[in-house]
Amino acid sequence: MGWRHPQISMEEVVNLIKGFVDILILLSGYQSSGRIAHWDSHNVKKVFQWGLFFEQVFGSFSCSDDYASSVEEIDAALSEITSAASFPKGLAHLSSATLAKARRFVLEHLIHTLPLRDVHLRALLTATVEMDLEELSETGHDFLNAYFNKLKSQNTLLDQRIAPATTTENCGSDGFTRIVEWLLGSMTWNRWKSKNLSYFLDKRTIRLVSGASMIFSAPKIQWVQIFERLNLNISAGSSDDGLCETTELLLLGCITSRWTSLIEHLMSISHDYKNILEQYNEVCNLLHGRSTDLKSKQEATCTKGSDILEYLSGFLGNQMYQLWKVSPVLAAVAIPSWSPLFRLYLSEIQIQFQGDFSTMRCCNCANDKKEHNDCELAERIWCLYIFHVNGSHLA
C-alpha cells in the first residue's frame, strides 16, 4: 500500500533523517571535516527538538495497523542508507523503532560516543532547563513555580546531586530535565566502573595476582609460613603500608580463580537506575536473605578461599580499617556475604551511611549534611551491589 502519512511525504522524511544523522555526527564532538564541533545550548536544543519531531511522526504509526506498510517502507529506505560504506557505523542500527524514541536514542548516542566535559554538561543542563520552561510557558502564566514544583515532586537536581534515576525510555513524558537527571546518575556509574576496572587491569595488580596465584597454589601450611615471616618483617618495621599490602595480597588470593569472570562481569554491567539508598538496602538484605545452605555450598566449593579469609581475619585482628585502604572493588569481590568479615565490613558501612560516629570516616557527607551520592562510601556500596546483588553468581 506504500507510504500513507497524511502530513509529510516519504521523500521529506528521508531527507530529514539524513539531516538528523548529520546533527548526531556533530553530537559526537566533531564536524565532517574533522574539526571539533561547537557545543552550546542552542545546538543541544536543536537535536532534542529533532528527536521530539521524529517521536511524533513515528509514534503516530503505532496508533493504527493501517500504517504498517509505511513502517516497512521507511525501514527499507533506512536499511539502504545505513548500509552505505560512508554511513557512520555507530548509527547503523537506526530504524523506525529507534526514531520512535529519538530523544532516548540521542541521549544514549551522546553518552556512548563523547566523553562529556564541563562545557558539554553545562550546555546540556542549560538546554534542558530552557526547553522545559518553554514548554511550561505555553500552558500558563505562573510557569516558573510550576517548573519548581515539578522538579520538587520528582526529587530531581534541586533536591539532591544525583536523584533516583529513571529509564531513558520514560524521560520524554516527564520533561527534558528528567533526561539530565538520568544522565548524571549514568555518568557517575560509568566513572566508578572505569575506575575499578582500571584497578583490575593495572600492571601492579596483575603482578600481585600472579604472585598470589603462585603462593596459594602451595599447601596451606606452606603459605601460612610465608605470611608469618612477612608479619615478622612488618612488625619489626612498624609499617602500616606493609599491613595494607599483605591485606591486599590475601584478598587477591581469594579471587585468582575468578579473575577473568569478575573482569567480564564488571565490563558488562550497565546503569540499572537504582539510587544509592536502594542499592544500600538491597546489600543490607543480603545478611538476612542468605541461607546456611548457601554458606555450606560456597565453603565446599571454595575451601582455599575460606582458609585465606580465616587467616585474614586473624591477621587483621582489631585493625579492620585496613579493609578501607584497599580498592572498593577488591573488598567487594573478595569477601563473600557468608563470611564474618563481610558482616564487619558492612556494619561499618551502615554506621557511616547513617551518619553515626566512626573512627574510619571515608567522606564528609554526614558532617556536611549531604546525601551519600558521589563519595567513596557510595562507591563502596555500589561495588557491593554490582557483585553481590547483580552478580550474585560470582560473589
Rank of each mutant, 00 (worst) to 15 (best):
R4S: 02
V14R: 09
N15W: 07
K18I: 04
G19S: 15
I25T: 09
Y30D: 03
S33I: 00
G34Y: 08
N43C: 07
F53G: 06
F61R: 08
S64W: 06
D75L: 00
A76H: 11
A76S: 14
A77G: 05
S95F: 02
A100K: 06
K101P: 01
A102R: 03
E108P: 03
L110S: 06
L110D: 09
P115W: 00
L116P: 00
V119S: 07
A127Y: 06
T128R: 04
E130W: 09
D132S: 00
D142F: 12
S153D: 11
Q154N: 09
T156A: 14
Q160P: 04
A163Q: 06
T167H: 12
E181T: 10
S186D: 15
T188L: 13
N190A: 13
W192R: 12
L197A: 04
Y199Q: 05
F200I: 10
R204A: 10
P219H: 04
F227I: 02
N231R: 09
N233L: 09
S238Y: 13
S238I: 05
D240Y: 01
C254M: 03
I263P: 01
S270P: 01
Y280W: 12
E282M: 12
E282T: 03
C284R: 15
N285W: 12
I308K: 00
G314Q: 04
F315Y: 14
Q319L: 06
M320W: 00
W338T: 03
Y345T: 11
L346R: 05
D356E: 09
R361G: 02
C363M: 10
A366N: 08
E379V: 09
C383S: 11
L384C: 12
F387P: 00
H388I: 08
A395R: 03
